[in-house]
C-alpha cells in the first residue's frame, strides 16, 4: 500500500514536471508531446486508483487522439506561416 502511494506521488510529480515542460519548451512539437505525457501519467494514476474504465478513456483520447489532433493543427498553421513568408 505504501509503495503504491509512493508511485502515485511520483506520477503526480512527473505530471507537474511535464506540464511545466510543455509551457517552457520552445519547440511546439515537443510541447504537444509533453501535454500527451501528462495524459499518459494521469491514465496510469487512474489505473492505480482502481478506475480502469477512466484510465482507458484517458489513454486513448487524452494521450493518443488529442495529441495527434494538436500535431495536425500545428502542421496546418506551419504551412500557413510558410505561405506568408
Amino acid at each position: 500500500m505504501e509503495l503504491q502511494h509512493g508511485i502515485i506521488i511520483l506520477m503526480g510529480l512527473a505530471m507537474i514536471l511535464s506540464a511545466i515542460l510543455a509551457m517552457v519548451v520552445k519547440d511546439l512539437i515537443s510541447s504537444v508531446v509533453a501535454v500527451g505525457v501528462v495524459s499518459l501519467f494521469a491514465s496510469i494514476i487512474y489505473l492505480l486508483l482502481q478506475a480502469p474504465d477512466v484510465a482507458m478513456t484517458e489513454a486513448a483520447i487524452g494521450a493518443g487522439l488529442s495529441t495527434l489532433i494538436f500535431l495536425y493543427a500545428l502542421h496546418k498553421t506551419k504551412d500557413a506561416e510558410e505561405e506568408n513568408d
Binding site: 480502469p52 474504465d53 484510465a55 482507458m56 478513456t57 493518443g64 487522439l65 495527434l68
Partner: peptide
C-alpha cells in the same frame, strides 16, 4: 471487463489514425 463503447471506439479510431 473494464471499458466499453467509448473506449473501444477510440481504440478503433486510433487504428485509422
Amino acid at each position: 471487463s473494464p471499458g466499453g463503447g467509448f473506449q473501444g471506439g477510440a481504440v478503433i479510431a486510433s487504428a485509422v489514425l
